[in-house]
Amino acid sequence: MDHDEVLSLYERRFRREPAPEMPGAVVERAGAVVRQSGPAPCWNGVLWSDLDERTADAAIAEQIRHYAELGTEFEWKLYDHDRPADLDRRLLAAGFTAEPPETLMVAETARIAVPAALPAAGPEGVQLVPVTGMDGVELVADVHERVFGASRVRIRERLAVQLAEGSVVAVLAMAGGVPVSAARMDLHSGTEFASLWGGGTDPEWRGRGIYRALVAYRAREALARGYRYLQVDASAESRPILTRLGFAALATTTPYTYG
């Protein structure tokens, strides 16, 4: 895999010329900024910018005004190669809050779509169960709320919309009828990429291979649908696992939130 080539493709597909992520979302270029806006559960924020020392502060102020008029908080997704070099400090000075940095990682789907063993959990063991309806959506929301402290309402709304339009693959790891992990994969129609999200596992079940099995499951699903690459915004905890599985780090990205 040519890292520079894949990063350039990712930048074009997801930052400079992205499609709206769901019904109701609007992607627009406002000057030197590409942003997405939309009603909940849509993600609101800045995807890409082409700024310099002269234009950055005014562009930041304009995005704050735009989302204030919509009455929503938003995120500026900053990459380590974005310019100007002090854009991070300018965002902080404007009132943004930096979240933990993540690593943009990509792998060729065919390399990851391999069988993965699951740990035993009593006589039935751990089973991977696809999410096909609202009962499964509720279980995914339960796991994410328990593991990540995430809003179950937002997760439930988003996943329900995506299931209805066929733009997601979601899966649960069940042990003795109890969900111990959950993950999803967004399918980006018209692109070469599927993106992995979640993978949250109950603490007592970590370190047993469930995360790896969830990655492999989604990779097989992506391969069957013709997606060439898998993309992850990896946390510090998941990056070593993904590296061992064959993912390559292409950039560092930090979410800056406002509101």
Rank of each mutant, 00 (worst) to 15 (best):
D2C: 06
H3N: 13
D4F: 10
E5K: 10
L9W: 04
E11T: 15
R15E: 15
E17L: 02
P18N: 02
A19H: 14
P20C: 03
M22G: 04
M22S: 03
A25I: 05
V27I: 04
R29S: 12
G31W: 09
A32L: 10
A32M: 09
Q36R: 03
G38M: 06
P39R: 11
A40T: 14
A40H: 13
A40N: 11
P41A: 03
P41E: 13
N44G: 10
G45V: 08
W48F: 14
S49R: 03
D50A: 10
R54N: 15
A56V: 14
D57M: 10
D57V: 14
A59E: 15
I60L: 13
I60P: 02
A61I: 13
A61L: 14
R65T: 15
R65M: 12
H66D: 14
H66R: 10
Y67C: 04
E73T: 09
E73Y: 13
E75Y: 11
W76Q: 03
W76S: 00
L78D: 07
Y79E: 15
D80H: 08
H81L: 10
D82Y: 00
P84N: 03
D86W: 08
D88R: 00
L91N: 00
A93Q: 13
A93K: 11
A94S: 12
G95L: 11
G95K: 03
F96I: 11
T97M: 11
T97D: 13
P100V: 09
E102Y: 15
V106S: 03
V106C: 04
E108R: 15
A110W: 13
A113V: 09
P115C: 06
A116C: 11
A116G: 09
A117K: 13
A120R: 13
A120D: 14
P123H: 00
P123E: 08
E124S: 09
E124I: 10
G125M: 05
G125A: 06
V129R: 00
G133Y: 01
M134H: 14
G136Y: 01
G136R: 05
G136N: 01
L139F: 01
A141T: 07
D142R: 11
E145W: 00
R146E: 15
R146Q: 11
S151Y: 02
I155G: 02
I155Q: 01
R158F: 07
Q162F: 09
L163D: 05
V168R: 01
L172C: 06
M174A: 07
G176Y: 00
G176W: 05
V178M: 09
V180W: 05
A182P: 03
A182M: 00
M185W: 12
D186C: 02
D186L: 06
L187P: 04
L187N: 08
S189L: 04
G190Q: 09
G190K: 08
T191E: 07
A194Y: 08
L196T: 12
W197C: 05
W197T: 15
P203R: 08
P203N: 01
E204R: 10
I210V: 06
Y211H: 08
A213I: 06
A216T: 06
A216L: 01
A219F: 05
A219H: 05
A219I: 05
A222M: 02
A224H: 04
G226L: 02
Y227F: 11
L230C: 04
L230H: 11
Q231N: 11
S235K: 00
E237A: 10
E237F: 14
P240L: 00
I241C: 02
T243G: 08
F247W: 12
F247Y: 15
F247L: 03
A248M: 11
T252H: 13
T253V: 15
T254S: 07
P255C: 09
